[in-house]
Computed example of a mutant assay.
Amino acid sequence: MSEPLVVVKDLVKTFVSSKGLLSPKRYVHAVTDVSFTIHPKETFALVGESGCGKSTTGRLVTRLLHPDAGQVIFDGTDITNYTVNQMRPLRSNMQMVFQDPYGSLNPRIKIEDLVAEPLKIHTNLSAEERRKVVYELLEVVGLRTEHADRYPHEFSGGQRQRIGIARALSVRPKLIVADEPVSALDVSIQAQVLNLLKELQQKYELTYLFISHDLSVVEMIADKIGVMYLGKLVESAPKEELYSNPLHPYTKALLSAVPIPDPTHKRNRIILKGDLPSPVYPPSGCMFHTRCPNCTEQCKVEKPALREVSKDHFVACPYV
C-alpha cells in the first residue's frame, strides 16, 4: 500500500467561551486525541452527531485552525506549526467544499471570477488561459459555459454546490475536505452531487475527507469511516466492516437509526438515554458512559484508548 497522504496524530482543539467580560473563562473541548490516516485516492468519512467536532477536525487538517496539540502530516511533511505564509503554497494541494452553497459563494462576483480566483493566487496563467480552465471545469461539473457570466443568486442550491466543487478543483488539489457538502440539498440532488464527487475522484485521482452526520450518505461514497462522539474518535473501520460488524455501542445506535427503503423490514432501534453532554464539561472516563447501556464503574473513571481489534478496525471500548 502507498504511503498515507494525510496522517493525523492525537489532535486536540479547545475554544475559550465566556458569557461576559467579568465571567470566568470556560473551555469548549471540541477535539480530543483524534488520530487517523488517509491514503491517496481514498475517501475517509467522519460521522457523528452535530457538535461532535467533525468540522473542526476538517479545519485542523487543512490548517484553517491551529491545533492545541497533536500533529498533522500532509504528503510526508509535518505542517502542524506552519505559519500562514508557509501554508500558502500548500493551499493548492488541499481545498475545501463547504456545507452551505448559499453562503460559500460571494453574491457580488460572477461565477467565472469565483472559479478562477484560486488560479489567480496559485498559478501564472493569463486571463484567457484562466477563462479556458473555468469553462472546462463548469462542463466537468455538469454546468454550461454560458453560466460563467451569471451571479450565484441565479442558481439553485445543487448548482451552487457544483460551482463550489469546480472552484475547489481549479488548482488540481491532492486532498479535498468536503464538509457536509450535500446536507443542505434535496435528496434527489444529493445523489447527483455524490455521484459527481465519485466520478471526479476517479478522473482526477482525488483524496477526500468527507464529513457528514448521515450514515446513509456516507455508505454511498466512503472507503473508510471514523465515528466521532463529543470530540473523540470512538470507532474507525473500512466501510463494509463497520456496517456489517459495528462494535462500539454508539456506532450500533447510529446504524440502527439509518432508514431502510423497505416498508416490510423493521430494524431494531437502539434509543440512547439522556442528553448529549456539554463539551464545556465533558464526562470523566469514557465520554460515552453517561448514555451507554453497557456502562460499568470502570467506564466512569478510565479513558479507553483507540485500539485495533482486527485489521484496520479500531474501537475505543475495553469490553469489545
Results as ranks from 00 to 15, higher is better:
V7S: 12
V8S: 01
K9G: 02
D10C: 09
V12D: 12
V12N: 14
K13C: 03
T14W: 05
L21N: 11
K25Q: 14
R26F: 11
A30G: 04
F36A: 03
H39Q: 14
K41H: 14
E42P: 00
E42T: 00
L46V: 07
G51A: 10
G51P: 05
T56E: 10
T56D: 11
L64P: 01
H66A: 15
D68H: 09
G70D: 01
F74V: 05
I79R: 02
N81S: 15
R88G: 07
L90D: 05
L90K: 12
R91L: 13
S92V: 03
M96E: 05
M96L: 13
F98H: 10
Q99W: 08
D100E: 15
P101G: 07
P101W: 01
Y102E: 14
S104R: 06
L105G: 00
I111N: 00
E112K: 15
D113W: 13
V115K: 01
V115A: 02
A116F: 04
E117G: 08
I121T: 12
H122K: 09
S126Y: 10
E128T: 14
Y135Q: 13
L137H: 03
L138V: 06
L143W: 03
T145R: 15
H147A: 10
Y151Q: 08
S156P: 09
G158D: 03
G158S: 08
G158K: 06
Q159F: 05
Q159Y: 05
R167F: 00
V171S: 06
P173F: 07
V177R: 01
D179T: 05
P181K: 00
V182S: 03
L185F: 06
D186W: 10
S188M: 09
I189C: 09
I189N: 05
Q190M: 12
N195M: 08
L197F: 05
L197K: 03
L200Y: 01
L200W: 02
L200T: 01
Q201H: 06
K203G: 03
Y204V: 06
Y204P: 04
E205H: 15
Y208Q: 02
S212A: 15
D214N: 13
L215T: 03
V218W: 00
M220Y: 15
M220K: 15
M220F: 15
I221L: 08
A222L: 04
A222T: 02
I225L: 11
G226N: 07
G226S: 10
V227P: 00
Y229S: 11
L230N: 00
G231Q: 05
E240C: 08
L242G: 00
Y243F: 15
Y243D: 08
N245W: 03
L247S: 04
H248R: 09
T251L: 09
K252Y: 08
L255Y: 10
A257N: 09
A257S: 14
P259E: 09
P261A: 07
K266V: 13
R267A: 12
R267L: 12
I270L: 11
K273Y: 06
K273R: 13
G274D: 11
D275R: 14
L276M: 15
P277T: 05
S278A: 11
P279S: 09
P282D: 07
G285D: 03
M287K: 11
C292K: 06
Q298Y: 13
K300E: 12
K300G: 09
K300S: 13
V301Y: 07
V301K: 13
E302V: 10
P304Q: 04
E308G: 12
S310L: 08
A316R: 01
P318C: 01
P318F: 02
P318I: 03
